[in-house]
Each structure stands twice: as structure tokens, then as C-alpha cells.
């Protein structure tokens, strides 16, 4: 028996946002639709809506990340929430305080939402299982497991450019093994019914049984991106060379780096995506990154709107649950 989905309340509303696995197609589409609404907020003179006024959002970053942290911070602020950002990597855990201690301390400050980034898979689930009722947890990346807001912003970007998922061929290139971004993208693409999903990497950067993730496996970049509508490049961590997973950045770029020439087999209107930050000359060359088919900067703007939508949905669910409790 699969365990109940802790992300949803008993009516199927989003309470926590931990992984895209186990979320219905309807719910994913609802998130994408809501994001359309939030996209307009950035065009207002006052880039703020009062939805989460009086709510406190704590960004718990156990692993440093400037970009994700900033976009979550902006998203929360644009919802009028009070935002608290804690870089815990450097502080309490090194003093022997457990993750639960940290959590309990913040709960005592009446935080309404935790946005969590952690180096270990399952960390967001763990926190969601232990927060007080009424507190939502948003996963901002846990180990290799999941980065659901990134996955959704990528789906949002794809939908804006390409529409119907069922006709699309999507190629994901790079370090699938260590990539929470790839896992979230794959889960979303499976649920949204993408036509064909491909993963392209050397064997050392693929997990065991990669086909079980719902994708066709390629080891040749040109073959893998042939007739693709969307080409997603993943970030390559430098540590991978030390772990004997790759011989060198040079050879990686020779084989798996995206150039205009190698992109030639893709559809002429294919878009190129990357979760950032890009290692130019490793994952792709600058010509592609800054070229007409790149939608990388758009991904960043969309990221804020997606995060606003998800935060507003979760806080909204908690509000409704609180209301139900009050009536009981």
C-alpha cells in the first residue's frame, strides 16, 4: 500500500510542495494556470499583491544557493509575506543542533511556511512530516531527489512556447544521476503526457534503470536531440571529475556540450533551457546560451511567478483548513 500523499489535504488541495511525483495532471495544470495570473504582478508598478500579508515565510537553506534563494525571497515578498532567510549550512548544524531542533525553534516564532533547501534526498519530506499542523513546507531542492518549483517553471516555460505537451519531444542532457532538477522534470513530463522524453548522458552520469524514469536513453548528443522541440541542458558539478565520473571538462564538452552545430539536428524552432547557473564552455557554448533559441532568462522570471503560485496555493489551503477547524 503506498503511503498517503502528505503533500495534499484530504480534499486533494496542495498543503506542502515536496515532489511532483504523485500529483495529478489536473493539479499540475492548475499550478501552471495560476502562474499565468501571477506573471502579471511583475508588470505592476507596485510589484506586490497582498495575498500573504501577515504571513511569515522562513527560507531554510542548509545548502547555499544564491539564485533559488533570491527567487523564493522575491516570490514571498511579492505576496506581501514577511521573509526570513537563514543560511543554516554555516550556523547551527555545525554546533550539533539537529534539524528538528532548528525546526522547533523557528516554529516557536510562528512561521507559516518553510522553504527548504538541503543536501540530502528526502529532507523536505522529513521536515513536512514533523512540522506543526498549519505550517507548509516547500521543497527548494533536496539532494538528488526533487526540485519541484524548478520542474514546474520549466514546464511553464515549455507550455508558453510549445503548447500541447503530447506532441513534444523533450531531450534532457547531462548529469541525470545527481540532478534533482532532471528528476522533477521527468516526473512532470510523465504526468503531463509529453510525447517523447529522452535523456542523454554517459553511463557514469545515469542512475540505475534509467528507463524506469520514463525516458529513452541516448549516449550520443546529435542522435538524442534529433527532431527535439525542447533541449534541456543540466548543470555539471565540477566534483564529478574528482569522483572519477568523467575524465575532463574538455572531453565532456566535446561529447555532450551543446553548440549551434550540434543543435542543428533539433527542430528549427527548438528552445534551449538550462536551470542555471551555466558553465559556459562545459554544458554549452555562449553562442547557444545567448542565442535566439535560448529561453534561459525567461526561465528565471517564470520561476518567481511559479513560486508565488505554489506558495499562495499552500498558504490558501492552510487558511481554509484553519477555517474548517474553527467551525468544528
Amino acid at each position: 500500500m503506498p503511503p498517503p500523499n502528505i503533500q495534499l489535504d484530504d480534499q486533494g488541495h496542495l498543503k506542502h510542495f515536496l515532489t511532483l511525483e504523485g500529483l495529478s495532471r489536473e493539479l499540475l495544470i492548475k499550478i501552471l494556470d495560476k502562474t499565468e495570473g501571477f506573471l502579471g504582478v511583475a508588470r505592476q508598478a507596485v510589484k506586490k499583491v497582498p495575498l500573504c500579508r501577515g504571513k511569515t515565510v522562513a527560507n531554510l537553506f542548509f545548502e547555499t544557493s544564491t539564485r533559488t534563494r533570491t527567487t523564493f525571497e522575491l516570490a514571498a515578498k511579492r505576496l506581501s509575506a514577511d521573509v526570513l532567510t537563514l543560511n543554516i549550512a554555516a550556523s547551527s548544524t555545525s554546533k550539533g543542533e539537529t534539524l528538528l531542533d532548528t525546526l522547533r525553534n523557528l516554529e516557536a516564532m510562528h512561521v507559516d511556511m518553510f522553504v527548504v533547501r538541503h543536501a540530502e534526498s528526502g529532507a523536505a519530506h522529513f521536515i513536512a512530516q514533523h512540522v506543526a499542523p498549519g505550517v507548509s513546507v516547500i521543497n527548494a531542492g533536496d539532494g538528488r531527489h526533487s526540485h519541484p518549483t524548478q520542474g514546474m517553471l520549466d514546464m511553464f516555460t515549455i507550455r508558453r512556447h510549445k503548447g500541447d505537451f503530447s506532441r513534444l519531444t523533450v531531450a534532457i542532457v547531462g548529469d541525470i544521476l545527481h540532478s534533482r532538477v532532471a528528476r522533477s522534470q521527468l516526473a512532470a513530463l510523465r504526468t503531463l503526457g509529453a510525447g517523447e522524453v529522452r535523456i542523454i548522458a554517459p553511463r557514469t552520469l545515469l542512475p540505475a534503470e534509467p528507463e524506469s524514469l520514463g525516458a529513452r536513453v541516448f549516449h550520443d548528443l546529435r542522435e538524442g536531440v534529433r527532431d527535439a522541440d525542447v533541449v534541456i541542458m543540466l548543470r555539471l558539478q565540477r566534483e564529478r571529475m574528482r569522483g572519477a565520473m568523467l575524465p575532463s571538462e574538455h572531453e565532456y564538452f566535446q561529447l555532450f556540450g551543446l553548440t549551434e552545430e550540434r543543435l542543428a539536428t533539433a527542430k528549427p524552432d527548438a528552445i534551449v533551457m538550462h536551470p542555471g547557473p551555466i558553465n559556459r564552455g562545459v554544458e554549452m557554448d555562449s553562442q547557444v546560451a545567448d542565442g535566439p533559441r535560448s529561453v534561459i532568462l525567461e526561465q528565471v522570471s517564470n520561476g518567481i511567478a511559479v513560486r508565488m503560485a505554489v506558495m499562495a496555493l499552500c498558504i490558501g489551503t492552510q487558511n481554509r483548513l484553519a477555517q474548517v477547524d474553527a467551525h468544528d
Partner: peptide, 15 residues
């Protein structure tokens, strides 16, 4: 176990 579940949950596998 390095297999289907560890691939999905992103847990470091033991082959």
C-alpha cells in the same frame, strides 16, 4: 539498493 527506487528517490545507491 541501486535500482528503480533509488533512481526515483535520488538516494545514493549501493549496487
Amino acid at each position: 539498493h541501486e535500482g528503480r527506487i533509488s533512481a526515483r528517490l535520488g538516494l545514493p545507491g549501493i549496487p
